[in-house]
């Protein structure tokens, strides 16, 4: 069974010390994280940098939209061939408007879908949490599969100066 504990800090320095302490105590990267109410500069707590693929979604959506738009505009013009102003039936400049709009449309839809997958939202099991985090406090949360390490984590948090430790 997965359990988690949360150490609460008022200042960023001790929270960063706790993160360092957890690394030194042998806790695996990805089993502990920092919770903040405002985005600190990346790497401020020496935290693990998780990989995400959010940027792939709009690119993928835009490619699909662009491809569909070429198909739609070309098929329409080939199905109803009509020479306008002496231009070729398949005129790229005449197709650009629809191509642009469909690319944007598919890009936005794919981004929304990407957010659902990549933002870890909705977070159905938020685990241990404290409402003071949105008031500027900083939380260091550790997740365990093995409860024997809880005491080690508490020691690290206490040593770093956690003002409170909560269990879930």
């Amino acid at each position: 069974m997965t359990t988690s504990i949360l150490g609460l800090f008022q200042q960023p320095e001790p929270a960063a010390d706790a993160m360092d302490g957890l690394k030194e105590a042998g806790f695996e990267l990805g089993t502990f994280d920092v919770l903040t109410g405002t985005p600190y500069p990346e790497g401020a707590f020496g935290e693990h940098v998780p990989q995400h693929r959010l940027f792939r979604f709009p690119a993928f959506g835009a490619i699909i939209g662009f491809t569909l738009s070429i198909f739609l505009t070309a098929a329409t013009q080939l199905a109803y061939p009509m020479v306008t102003g002496g231009k070729p039936i398949l005129s790229i400049f005449a197709m650009l408007i629809i191509m642009y709009e469909m690319t944007m449309l598919a890009g936005v839809i794919a981004t929304v879908i990407g957010i659902i997958f990549e933002s870890r939202l909705p977070n159905l099991k938020p685990g241990v949490y404290d409402t003071r985090i949105t008031e500027g406090w900083i939380g260091v949360v550790i997740t365990f599969d093995d409860e024997s390490k809880v005491a080690d984590a508490e020691n690290v948090l206490n040593k770093a100066g956690a003002l409170e430790i909560k269990h879930a």
Binding site: D33, E42, H52, I115, L121
Partner: peptide, 16 residues
């Protein structure tokens, strides 16, 4: 949506 302010949540928020 269960936001708690983890690092990945902030990173993806910036990207969004």
């Amino acid at each position: 949506r269960g936001w708690v302010g983890t690092d990945i949540q902030w990173r993806t928020l910036r990207m969004r």
